[in-house]
Amino acid sequence: MDWNFDQIVPYIPFIFEGIKVTLQVTLISVVLGFIWGSILALIKISKLGPLNWFAVAYTSVFRGTPLILQLSFVYFATPQLTGYSISQWEAAVLTFTLNSAAYISETIRGGILAVDKGQWEAAKALGVPYRRMMLDIILPQGVKNILPALVNETIALLKESALVSTIGLADILQNANVVRGVTFRYLEPYIIAGVLYYVMVMLLTWVARFVERRMRRSD
């Protein structure tokens, strides 16, 4: 087997530079997606008529079309639609936020509905208004129920973030592609990229276990 890292070594720092972009896109999208997804989930379990309908349709569309299509659409069609020339980074974060919110909203909805009805009643009986009840009593318990699912969503997003290479954003995969182009070596850059993704996923898994243990303190 032709196995030669010598030629690649000078380019390793360059591939590593992609970590920053990969992490940025993933973490920012997951945080924004969580916020937007929470709002969507709250709309879905409330009875707000048209808003409710919007949230359901939104989720359906984002879950029913390929992510790579959504990314291409946001990046290439936004200038045509609005005249604003969206940067690669903005397009990536926007797409992943909108997309992950759709998935996260369903997870959160499930988590909220799994909270004991007694909690709602206890809060109501104390005269806690709906909004406060959701934010302070129901949502924290719902999120705790779904923490493992949220971590899985983050991990999935981290891996899917490699799609941003298709619009030329310099993430890990894109930089590996560049190295491939320069050196004409395929095996080594992709192995390095693969190891980087794997290590990051493992780190995330550990962080998640730690957070989960902390949150289960009250059990």
Binding site: E121, A122, A123, G127, P129, S218
Partner: peptide, 26 residues
């Protein structure tokens, strides 16, 4: 005030916070 068969304390709050939550926030 209402007291339920199954208590329904808020599990993510300490006993003290269970008591102070509503008076403070509501």
């Amino acid at each position: 005030g209402m007291v339920f068969q199954h208590f329904h304390l808020f599990p993510h709050m300490t006993v003290l916070n269970n008591l102070t939550y509503a008076p403070v926030k509501v």
